[in-house]
Design a protein around this nucleic acid. Structure first.
Lengths: 138, 138
DNA sequence: TAATTTTACTTGCAAATTGCAAGTGCAAAT
DNA sequence: ATTTGCACTTGCAATTTGCAAGTAAAATTA
């Protein structure tokens, strides 16, 4: 599977990579949990189909948004993690949350996070980015 | 057509509305041009199919992201414009552009805009929002 | 050690969505 | 009065999605 660019527009190019109903949910899970297994993604409340999950994970990996790494406890498990390119989607993710909060009721725990964001957005992003970047030695 | 929410997550809810390959391109056009006709959207370099455009415009209108208004020059034309809810997607749009700029080559005119953004993001958004909100009396 | 379970997928197929081409109906221009 | 422009709609083939079941390797249990 190769990326087909519809135009040179940066918005269009971005959507070519993660502009579907599922990719940003996978990225969301990785931002909130830092690392996830295949099974973790399946536990998300939106209930992605297993074949769609597999195809999205593959596409995101091909586009260097996520990467696989060995699970420290088991060879049967696979850990997925955001690359720097993926972590850099954080500002977009935060703005999506802020927009949604303005127009829809949202869960309390997410609301608490956004309260922190609004205190100092730049600091929040910097700190969360640092956390996500910390690559544990295994 | 009614919105089916996959979960209470604000990201998921947002994607239910505009999380496809085309909606944000329509919104992009309206942000850059302020107002567009049906034909204007068709002129975009990504070449959306006419039936897809019609269905997206309808969905975005149902979700109060855009609204129709009478064209001042002709009853045969229809003008589309962003609502406040749509204009509030601007921070997301800007972050998408900034992310893309970091990882892909992007056109010079867009790059010039992002230079302005980076000088003072908050001021840029405020000023562009104001411009988009100005509802001309016709 | 053998049998069962867990984990990460793959496969097959029906249903929904997309994309292309052509058509329609009203408005405006000629 | 006829043609052109504009905003869609329609029909249909191709692609994508979603569900259910299956597979293979690794880990656990008996």
């Amino acid at each position: 599977m190769k990326l087909k660019k519809r135009s040179d527009c940066p918005v269009s190019t971005s959507l070519d990579i993660w502009g579907d109903k599922w990719s940003l949910l996978i990225i969301r899970d990785l931002m909130f949990a830092k690392e996830c297994t295949y099974g973790d993604f399946l536990k998300a409340p939106e209930h992605i189909a297993t074949n769609i999950l597999a195809s999205r994970l593959q596409a995101l990996e091909e586009n260097k948004i996520i990467e696989k790494l060995d699970h420290p406890e088991s060879k049967a498990k696979v850990l997925y993690r955001l690359t720097k390119k993926g972590i850099d989607l954080l500002p977009i993710m935060i703005e999506i949350n802020l927009w949604a909060e303005k127009y829809f009721p949202i869960p309390a725990n997410r609301k608490a996070m956004l309260k922190e964001v609004k205190k100092d957005k730049i600091a929040f992003i910097k700190s969360m980015t640092k956390e996500l970047e910390r690559q544990d030695v295994r």
